[in-house]
Amino acid sequence: MAEETSRPNDADEQAPAPEGPAQDDPRDQEVTRRKFLITSVGAMSGAMAAAVAVPAIFYVAGPVKEQGASEEWIRLGSASSVETGSKTLMKATVERRAGYLTTTEELSVFVSTDNGTDFLALSNICTHLGCRVRWVEEQDGFFCPCHNAVFGPDGSVLEGPPPRPLDRFETKVEDGQIFIRKL
């Protein structure tokens, strides 16, 4: 050790190879103590960084896989309150769990029926950027206030930027109550 430190401290200070291009210098191929130590320290540092970085990726991405809304049937209300041939806006509160917090959220759904037994439930969330659409009876369409999108009574896109029709829910009627579920 003492001998090591008393010497000029690095290989950089060695005289350049007297002749020939540097690549042919056999010392470049040689594993010197210095090269070995640099590589070892580098490898250990990399391993330690990875020991934190890899778990960190899973940790950061943790909540992504959490299921927000439940897959259960949600009760909207009485089936008799839906007027035939029109759109009725029905609301339900759903519980949403996000990490350590459970919040209630209001879900609004346009429900319609032609015969009183088969129901169509459409989400009021515009498929473009998530604004809330409203039903305009006189023009027979859903209008989005944000970018002037228009959806038909069946939810299909008539005008504007939305990439797909309004989302539909699966419906069922039990004891005169309408239930919906995510499709």
Partner: peptide, 19 residues
Amino acid sequence: LAYASVTYITNELPFGWLI
């Protein structure tokens, strides 16, 4: 929420206990 968020980190998040 502080205690709940710490519990969430420790018990529910992947590798939260490690961090």
